[in-house]
């Protein structure tokens, strides 16, 4: 019964991972909003992953906001120990569901899969291959894409913006990813950061491979979101940009911004002062308001930068910005 060996106690699974073929793959499926028929999904991906290894487990992580897990899936998990169903107590969102899944997983390779068909399930094997062959993280890229022009345009704009920060990834929206488990645990995932896993891993210095996989036909439906979603994505990108450049030096950001506001403010008020001394009245000049506003904003921004520096300094003893790849 090789099928059951994946569920031996953890110590045993560690030992088996030292064999060449004996690693366990945990497939984590966070179910938050949209979901296809999970039974069909499980069948398809189980068939695909079993061509690579018999040692795998499926973790379905249901967000609290999703509602009760489908009865058929729960029944199946009672029969097959390679299926586990978790449920978050409240609506925590996809990032939290992924974190819970990674924490509960028993494999030494974790794979995330969205609860709907994004790519052809057979592609699973290619991602696992990439991880075997030295990549720390392997992410799928839907290619060739079957999406219409609207989806492509959105995706193009989004990724062009992100590329201005760093990386060079083409499809962050694809949730099919494989990575060593320790890497999954080490990534600081919070908020909506699950979307940026490839970029976060890349910035930590991990080797990230992008693997083109054909897009699933069911995934090619036009996607139009509420305006709030677009605003959120834009804010996410701004957060990433700030974190990438100024995590350790907030005053460089706020100080620069503050002084570019303060300088014209000072210039305006100086000019007005000179004019006043020459006898020109300035009280009814709107530009005085502008100058005063710029001065006030500049001072505030510099002050915020100083608070930021204080916080960074306090956190510094427990934080390292380097990561060691290897030692001799």
């Amino acid at each position: 019964m090789a099928t059951h060996s994946a569920f031996a106690p953890r110590a045993t699974s560690r030992r088996s991972s030292e064999d060449t073929a004996g690693e366990i793959v945990s497939l984590i499926i966070p179910v938050v909003r949209r979901a296809d028929d999970l039974i069909v999904l499980h069948d398809a991906f189980a068939a695909a992953v079993s061509t690579v290894t018999a040692h795998y487990e499926f973790l379905f992580v249901f967000d609290g906001g999703f509602g009760p897990p489908p009865e058929a899936l729960v029944a199946r998990s009672r029969r097959d120990r390679r299926i586990r169903v978790l449920r978050l107590a409240y609506a925590f969102g996809e990032t939290a569901a992924l974190r819970a899944g990674i924490a509960a997983s028993r494999g030494n390779v974790v794979m995330t899969i969205p609860p709907y068909f994004q790519v052809q399930p057979q592609g699973v094997a290619q991602l696992l291959d990439a991880v075997h062959n030295g990549a720390d993280v392997a992410v799928a890229r839907r290619c060739p894409r079957r999406d219409g022009w609207l989806n492509r345009l959105q995706s193009y704009v989004f990724h062009t913006l992100i590329r201005s920060v760093s990386g060079g990834f083409h499809d962050m929206g694809c949730g099919v990813r494989a990575m060593r488990r320790d890497i999954g645990e080490s990534l600081r995932l919070y908020g909506d950061m699950h979307r940026f896993i490839p970029l976060l891993a890349f910035r930590e210095g991990y080797r990230v491979a992008e693997i083109p996989l054909p897009q699933h036909a069911a995934d090619a439906r036009p996607r139009v979101y509420k305006p709030g979603i677009y605003v959120r994505r834009l804010l996410d990108i701004m957060t990433l940009f700030f974190l990438a450049k100024f995590t350790e030096k907030p005053l460089r950001f706020f100080g620069l911004l503050g002084s570019t506001l303060f300088a014209p403010g000072a210039l305006i008020t100086l000019v007005l002062l000179v004019q006043r001394l020459e006898g020109v009245g300035i009280a009814d000049r709107p530009v005085l308001l502008l100058g005063v506003l710029l001065l006030a904003l500049g001072v505030q921004l510099v002050g915020i930068g100083l608070v930021g520096e204080m916080i960074v300094y306090l956190k510094a003893p427990h934080r390292r910005s380097y990561r060691v790849r290897e030692t001799t």
Binding site: R203, E204, G205, Y206, Y322, R323, V324, R325, E326, T327, T328
Partner: peptide, 8 residues
């Protein structure tokens, strides 16, 4: 003589 290679 020890070498340390940083990831990035």
């Amino acid at each position: 003589v020890r070498g340390i290679r940083l990831a990035h």
